[in-house]
Amino acid sequence: PIYTKYFTLSWLKQWVLAINDLGVNIIFFGESLIGFYMINQNLISLSVFMTIIQASNMVINPIGWYMEMYNNVQSSSVVVDGYLKEVQKRKHQKKLLNEPIQSFLLKDLVFKRKEKTIFDHFTLQLQKGKKYLVVGESGCGKSTLLGLLSGTIPHPHIYANNIPTNALEHSSIAKQLTYLRQSPDLLPGTLEENITLWQTADSNKLNRVLDQVHLNSLKSRLHESVQEDSLEISGGELQRISLARGLYNIKDWLFLDEAFSALDEENAKQIEYDILKNYKGSIISISHKLFDENIMLFDEVIEFTKQGVNVLSSLEYLQKRKNSLHPIKNQISNNESVLPDKR
């Protein structure tokens, strides 16, 4: 492993520094032995000897410090060079994915986080062009799923076009997907540059995207810099700027991690509906704000439960959701003997 080689090389550094210290100590003890011999033979006095030692230290110590610094730099360069060569070697071993990603596959996936099992021999294939809703309680592993698929969490059992993602250059996966997180950040520059990512702005496209995410109020403020202390952006506006950025720079795969969480119910419902209806690429969306009309636009629902991960059709999930929201009503309607016959 790379770290084993790194620590092996670090022993060379310690060995060189030890030799340097040994050399300084030999000179010091050599001076002392000669000095004590000369004092014993009454050739010099103790005060003269101490003066010689002090004068010698004024010469020897700077030389020792210089040699220590020089050896430190030289030996460290061996460690750093070895580490960088190993990194480059491993980097070149990874492949570039030059074709479009047609599918992601989680194959017999076992994944634990802090001793908690998230996936237990789980298999799932996600196809290009389909839309997937991911639901479940907070902390159950939904964001981990997107991290695994995007390659930010490397794992040997995740495949893109049947190639393990940990064998691919991360950039070749990242350039094919847009990943919008729950808590986005504003980037240095103007509001327009935050959306276009410093591309030459296409005014028609920019206006269309701002309309799509209900940001008409910002059209007159696009020149404002995010460094300005007077810039006032609400949490909902910040999240819609992130959505606008993703839609303006749209790619084949769209990952949404609670991308509507800061929006009010009406805006969340309308913007999500518009994206699901008009976006032709693949969507994997984590959401706690669920609307029946929008759920119907998803092809499948990936549901995280305490018992494991289930994959349902949107109709199956809607029926299950309906039953869980109205358990008493459904129990009565499904069991005629609950109420006594009063005939």
Rank of each mutant, 00 (worst) to 15 (best):
A160N: 00
I328E: 15
E192P: 00
Q125K: 14
M50L: 15
E115P: 01
K114P: 00
V87F: 04
L124C: 05
S324D: 11
L191V: 08
E300A: 11
Y37P: 01
L124F: 06
S143I: 06
T152A: 14
N57V: 09
K320C: 02
V209W: 05
T305N: 06
V59M: 07
D108E: 10
T4D: 10
L126V: 08
S261V: 10
L312I: 03
V134S: 06
V48N: 07
S10K: 09
V79L: 03
R181G: 12
S75K: 12
Q74K: 14
K112A: 04
D341E: 15
K95F: 14
W198D: 07
I195C: 04
L254W: 08
I328H: 06
T190V: 09
K89S: 09
M38K: 12
Q102W: 04
N162Y: 11
S225Y: 07
F304W: 06
K114D: 11
D21G: 09
S282M: 04
K205H: 04
I34N: 03
K130N: 07
G236E: 02
I158M: 00
S313H: 03
K5S: 13
G147F: 04
S225A: 08
N40S: 13
K13V: 09
Y3H: 10
K91F: 15
I53W: 05
N330H: 15
S143L: 08
K219P: 01
I34E: 06
I2K: 10
S45E: 12
T178Q: 07
D185E: 11
I53P: 00
D120L: 15
L297G: 05
K130A: 10
V73D: 01
K142F: 06
W198I: 05
L339D: 05
F111G: 03
N323Q: 14
G246K: 01
L312M: 07
I283K: 01
S172E: 03
D274K: 13
L247M: 09
L210D: 03
Y159I: 10
S313E: 00
G236R: 06
I63S: 00
Q54V: 12
S313P: 01
I63M: 14
F255L: 14
V311T: 13
V311K: 09
A201W: 00
L297D: 03
K13M: 08
S220K: 14
V213F: 05
L145F: 01
D202I: 05
I195T: 01
L197Q: 02
V311G: 05
S234Y: 05
S324Q: 15
K280A: 14
H214V: 05
L312H: 12
S10G: 07
G35S: 12
L177F: 07
Y70K: 14
R240T: 04
D257R: 05
Q127F: 11
L46N: 13
I158V: 10
I39F: 12
Q102C: 08
Q14A: 12
K251D: 09
G281E: 00
Y3V: 14
Q270I: 13
S337P: 14
N71P: 05
S56R: 03
N57H: 11
H121R: 12
S76W: 03
L276P: 01
S45M: 09
N20E: 07
I283D: 02
E300R: 08
L17F: 06
H92C: 06
I44S: 00
Q127H: 13
K280H: 13
S138N: 10
E336M: 11
E193I: 02
P188N: 06
Q319H: 12
I233A: 00
I2R: 12
E224M: 08
L276S: 03
